[in-house]
Computed example of a mutant assay.
Amino acid sequence: MDLPANDYPAGLLGIQEPPCLSLYQPTHRHHPDNQQDPIRFRNLVKTLEESLWRAYPEEQVQPLIESFLALAGDRGFWNHTLDGLAVLAAPGLFRVYRLQRPVPELAVVADSFHTKPLLRILQSADRYQVLGLNRREVKLFEGNRDALDEIELAPEVPRTITEALGEELTEPHLTISTYGSGPTGPAMHHGQGAKKDEVDLDAERFFRAVDRAVLEHHSRPSGLPLLLAALPEHHHLFRQVSHNPFLLAEGIDIHPDAVSADALRERAWRTVEPYYLARLTELVETFGAAKAKGLGADDPAQVAGAAVAGRVATLLIDADCEVPGRIDPATGRVEFGNLAHPEVDDLLDDLAEWVLKTGGQVVVVPAERMPTETGVAAIYRY
């Protein structure tokens, strides 16, 4: 399963050889609701196929559709879906993403990918990760206020202490002290080090390897806060060796295997929510100060010009707002109107893509916490 945080925005916003196929649908986690999901998927694939036949020769159509049909027949996949599905395909590329939030049904063939539903999910401010850790193995979860699911670790992240250190444990170093010798009786021997120190040293080496790999392959690419879920003694050791700036000071003092999935999500969100609220408050205050100095704006047309020019450092967009329109990539001017397919041409999402392309930060904010009523709030670099 592909990780959207690793592909987006760098890969999916780049230039891709057409045709680009984008398929989105809501899915269900449990039986019997999930029985209809593969049927709906096949119907959407048929829509893609009909669009391709109208514009492309058979030798281009068949290889693209075959990957979709193989996924449609994968029972194991459809028995483990989440709340939404995104599939993006092009010549030489096929990406499948299970999503923790529902998305509207959509099947589009175009010269570029339709990435806006992914953007809405990936840039939401309430996302976080949970690192489940003990002396033997590691697990990683990703979630939001409503859902928390285990995700596949990047290949470079060791899953177990054996993967990290190999079959050989640290050689024991035993120091022997002798006392009690003499006329009072036989000499007594006391050993220090040995197995306990060996185990502690191996755990420390394992935790260091995990920390480095998680930082490089998960925390930095996603930018998400990281919550540690482990026994208290493992918290102490891991925090001693960790250099991950995304690791939160607060954690969960129990291993994920010891609680239900719902209980883990509840505990995680209780811990993450204060950081989430503090981050939103800071962003809103920063926007207010920037706007007062002429370094911020909430007019979508004005923000569009700044985004195309690369001036937007941070963009807040309303999670529930859509503004039909399109941006002229040459001038940055906005054309508003009642478009035939507003989901494909939502000005706020186009703004977000421009900001990401130019190295800015995008945060999708709940409507009740937006500092403006226009759906957008931009903080400029200059």
Rank of each mutant, 00 (worst) to 15 (best):
D349N: 13
L122T: 14
D262G: 08
L3Q: 14
T178Y: 06
V130W: 01
P324W: 02
P256K: 04
E168F: 12
V303Y: 01
L339R: 02
H28G: 03
A352L: 06
A203E: 13
A164G: 02
K196C: 07
D146L: 12
A309C: 01
R311N: 10
L295H: 12
I65D: 00
A89G: 07
R279F: 11
L99N: 05
H31Y: 14
D200R: 13
V365Y: 02
A313H: 10
C20K: 02
V303W: 01
A367E: 11
A125I: 11
N43V: 12
P245S: 06
W354C: 12
G76C: 08
I161M: 12
G73P: 06
L347A: 05
V214M: 03
H341I: 08
Y382K: 12
H236E: 15
W78P: 00
D257M: 09
D346L: 07
G14T: 11
V45Y: 02
E335D: 09
L106Q: 15
A55V: 09
L174N: 13
T178K: 07
D257N: 10
L3W: 14
T184R: 15
E49C: 00
P186T: 08
V214Q: 02
M188G: 04
I176C: 06
A261K: 12
G359Y: 14
L248T: 15
Y24T: 11
V199T: 12
H114R: 07
T178F: 06
D253F: 14
H80A: 15
A110Q: 10
L48D: 01
P155Q: 08
T374C: 11
I161V: 15
T281Q: 15
T372I: 09
F113R: 05
A230G: 00
E204V: 12
G337T: 08
V108A: 11
E137C: 05
A290W: 09
E282V: 11
I121V: 11
A230K: 00
L44V: 06
R98Y: 00
A378N: 03
L122Y: 01
W78V: 06
V284T: 14
T115M: 04
V138T: 13
V138G: 02
A154D: 15
D146N: 13
D83P: 05
K293N: 08
C20G: 00
A307T: 09
